[in-house]
Design a protein around this nucleic acid. Structure first.
Lengths: 328, 328
DNA sequence: CACCTCTGTGTCAACGTCGACTTGTGGCAA
DNA sequence: TTGCCACAAGTCGACGTTGACACAGAGGTG
């Protein structure tokens, strides 16, 4: 900036004023400065600006796995909101590991960002204080108990109950729930919904925990099928798990839906035309992302935000992967 | 840091020395400082550090669409390399739009990052100078003509030829290539490979350009099928396009592979167990990401890097979506 | 004509960190 | 005793930006 100032024969402050369009600057000076800017090839330095401002126009998004399409979509919708406001979204991966989560948060914190969005890792040890340092912090997709921080989730228990009932209503009695890690809030919430529906029908819950990846789920469903030969239906925790179930089914030379009815939690493009098209609980990713982003913006703007849990409804999308069980 | 210094009764510089483990510091002082650090709750400020260092320990990754699993995987592998080196990867989306690309690059540049990885947008107007400002810049996945910047791509022409030949060898003569945007380097390179193989077989090329999304490809294949009734095979440009082709097939009540043989460019988990499992060109995403990241690292370290095109080989993975055409 | 306001511009300091340099102490060889 | 070195700390300034304040001239008001 000094170089520009020297080139235009003014002070650095005047250059700053021209560039930001604040204060009084005569037309002549403005033109001179603008000319000098291009002549010198000046590029603003966000680091200097951030240092001065004590906070950076960035918002962190800490998720567990970017290759999970749900998070990819979440990132996309959140980014769109922030971009409009001139905030950059900074994506960080925790790999669902509490230690990595801490490190990444520390790293992010050192940049003094304006806000933070987190999908907590499985055994997350985050406390209210950890997040308080960020000023504007919001949890997305997953929650943490006893945290005085606003969160955005979907009505997982109800949606899961509905999915389970769809299978029960079709006549299934032994329904495997292939879930994520036992201690993830998402698992707990979905498991609760599943149990409620299954118990209400007087049936035995069959719960299987996985690392919520395709390969993990593939092994899990094969194990489930062998351990409980009566299973005629399954519910997949998320898109990768649903994939894993279908892969496992193929391993076992079983067909969907003839041998096993299936409901997936979270839609994916290919599920719409898979033979058979998969019945899924469609999560409102887009809406969740937008809402979470808005909450962060409200916090940034010092608008009052209650640290409550915001619930965006999911809906069951009935396709063709659920049929009546065939008599053994 | 000053607060810590005051609390420990030393100068800020001593605190800096303790924290970074450089220079001479007595054990007693070190202990005092460390105690003060936790007492005060000091968090290092990366902004100050970056300002001092004139460059930020960040590397930008500018891609066209994070919800394309290829880029998600690319991000993951690149991030792993940089994390080890203490560099943060900053993800930016260009939406495949040249204007957005410029803006994002300008934004990123204002942070004075240590390096940059770009998958250029379709009509990208990037010049060598644009990228020179970043010091260490490398192109990934896509290239740009006449740019003196190293790039990492896969052997698309050869891989595409091989894919095409797989269909030709099975007896197909009218093979639709459902490609991406006409001016993307990826499209051009893959189209060249396709044309070469098809022409060598004395057959007519059937090329269809799309916006490289599922819906776009779905419409394209339907159009193709109607316009050229003799088509018995297709090649999908990337995972979303392959999805779109399958969706379009379903719309037309056609089956794969009986009515249409299919080869996809780029694998996806579900393609392995889709009925039929899809024959694909598997791109070495992982290797491409690592190589690109290393090139950036070498540039950062001022090691000599030739601005050449680095080619990582793709391989054809034969599954069950290619069969001999049925007699009409 | 004293005083006030608007306009245009400049100077200073501070944000947090750290390289370069300076100061001061004690030990030890020449 | 002098001179040099290892050690242990401190001071200064600069990275780029901008809020706060100062200052100077133009015009207007009572």
């Amino acid at each position: 900036m000094k170089t520009v100032a020297a080139h235009a024969g003014v002070s650095a402050q005047t250059v700053s004023r021209v560039l930001r369009g604040t204060g009084y600057v005569s037309e002549a000076t403005r033109a001179k400065v603008l000319a000098a800017v291009t002549a010198v090839g000046y590029r603003p330095n966000a680091v200097g600006r951030s240092l001065r401002a004590t906070r950076t126009p960035m918002v962190g998004l800490l998720i567990t796995d970017i290759s999970n399409p749900f998070y990819a979509a979440l990132h996309k919708s959140i980014e769109a909101v922030f971009r409009q406001r001139g905030l950059t979204l900074m994506l960080l991966n925790s790999d669902d590991d509490r230690e990595t989560e801490r490190q990444q948060l520390e790293l992010l914190g050192s940049y003094r960002p304006s806000g933070l969005l987190v999908a907590p890792a499985v055994h997350s040890s985050l406390t209210t204080e950890d997040l308080a340092g960020f000023g504007a912090a919001v949890l997305v997709s997953r929650t943490l108990p006893d945290l005085a921080v606003p969160s955005v989730v979907t009505n997982e228990p109800e949606a899961m109950s509905e999915a389970t009932r769809a299978l029960l209503d079709a006549g299934h009695r032994r329904i495997a729930a292939v879930l994520g890690p036992q201690d993830a809030s998402t698992t707990r919430r979905r498991e609760a919904g599943y149990r409620e529906a299954v118990l209400a029908a007087g049936t035995e819950p069959l719960v299987f925990y996985t690392d919520q990846t395709g390969p993990g789920a593939r092994a899990a469903i094969r194990h489930a099928l062998h351990a409980h030969p009566g299973i005629t239906a399954a519910i997949g925790f998320n898109a990768p798990v649903t994939e894993g179930i279908l892969a496992g089914l193929r391993d076992e030379r079983l067909r969907c839906p003839q041998d096993l009815s299936l409901v997936g939690f979270t839609d994916a493009p290919w599920m719409a035309f898979y033979p058979p098209p998969i019945t899924v609980v469609r999560q409102p990713v887009e809406a969740m992302g937008r809402l979470a982003a808005r909450l962060v913006l409200d916090l940034v703007d010092d608008k009052p935000v209650t640290p409550e849990q915001h619930v965006v409804p999911s809906t069951l999308l009935r396709r063709d992967s659920v049929v009546a069980p065939t008599a053994p």
